[in-house]
Design a protein around this nucleic acid. Sequence first.
DNA 1: TTATTTGAACTGACTGGTCAGTTTAGTTAG
DNA 2: CTAACTAAACTGACCAGTCAGTTCAAATAA
Lengths: 220, 220
Amino acid sequence: MTNSPRGGSTAGPGDPEKKLRPGRTNATKQKLFEASMELIGERGAAGVTVDEIATAAGVSKGTVYYNFGSKSDLIAQLLRHGVDILMARLLSVRDDSADPLAAMEEMIGQAMDFMAEYPSFARLWVSENWRTPSEWQDTFAELRGRLLAVIGSAIDGVAAVYPVDPRVSRGSLETAIFGACFVVGLDRHAYNPERTREQSVAAIMASMRGYVVKQPPAQA
Amino acid sequence: MTNSPRGGSTAGPGDPEKKLRPGRTNATKQKLFEASMELIGERGAAGVTVDEIATAAGVSKGTVYYNFGSKSDLIAQLLRHGVDILMARLLSVRDDSADPLAAMEEMIGQAMDFMAEYPSFARLWVSENWRTPSEWQDTFAELRGRLLAVIGSAIDGVAAVYPVDPRVSRGSLETAIFGACFVVGLDRHAYNPERTREQSVAAIMASMRGYVVKQPPAQA
DNA sequence: TTATTTGAACTGACTGGTCAGTTTAGTTAG
DNA sequence: CTAACTAAACTGACCAGTCAGTTCAAATAA
């Protein structure tokens, strides 16, 4: 199936238990990530050929198959790579603050920065997530869960301090905020580059401010 | 380039100035819309072949090219078709109500119903919108503008009656709500079918409730 | 020190298959 | 009659994945 270098018993970096020779770097994989992120974000996973990715990375096609077992595998690893970066930024938000709403706001700001920096990843995500029988279904489910957990705990932090609207379920709110981050970030990049980071954050934060009640919520 | 029926001088329905024979229906086009909406929503525009669409619609491949000039043209018309339906629903919301917040809530409800009924359209939209050099860039820009205008006027209606948070720009809020409708609708369909329509609407409405200020907004 | 070997990393031509779009000769039904 | 549609064959481009062969730094041997 997948391309394994020569012997079959020897392990290449494409194999799960890759053990880099000391002094060696992941330079090739990194270049392939960058090139494919760009191309796939712009034209979609199906719209980009492996040859194009290889050329853009300054590498031969065979190298792609040496480092990744398949195009599909490359994309799965690309998704993980992007989520790792986003997660790191979200988790960088210190939670010590007295005001969990401020922490939430900073997290949304981090998300907006990420979308501005990696719009191609955001496009890849919204393009391929939600496809019903997708090759990356499991990957998406896992990564989505990881991200939502972070947002969810930030929401919990708010709910622990402020009175909140009981009509709004935590899960739906997580999703709404998560989705708004992607869409607002992408829209800013594609259609409204003049919009500021703060405007975007404020628009998304509106849902958090609507979630906390200043007076008892209207009777259900 | 594109296929023009027979002689080149004869006009088929694929041509811009189609003039349906009275008594004739659009049955074939309708079937093609339904079939391609389903398939393209699931596997993406590039992942579906014209042959598959024709077969799923119970029609021959030639008929697709008779009714539409190309695959690309079919998809452009498909986008318009879907937006026509969504627009009709959004505009069906009577605006006479005393409370523009209630009108907004009903519009979001209509949007959620649409997403539940045409999840494939929603997937197609988020998959192909935001692609940088896309064949349907102009189509998307126009349709997006039409939809945002409707949401924007509903927001204006609220802002005319309630005091609103000046930190939140109308444009960003439009985008956030618009995007949240798609993403919450899709997520419900794909990952959380147990979530109710009301929960979803409430989560999105939170941003509107956060937009109107109950006490003067915190000093900027 | 110098020669030899090893194997991970990489190359790029090639294969087998797929697919958009075309064409043609015909059929159906209003 | 003619608009709408069918069925099937065909073209030409494109593309994922393969594989025999190359390179070269480090390991080992002499």
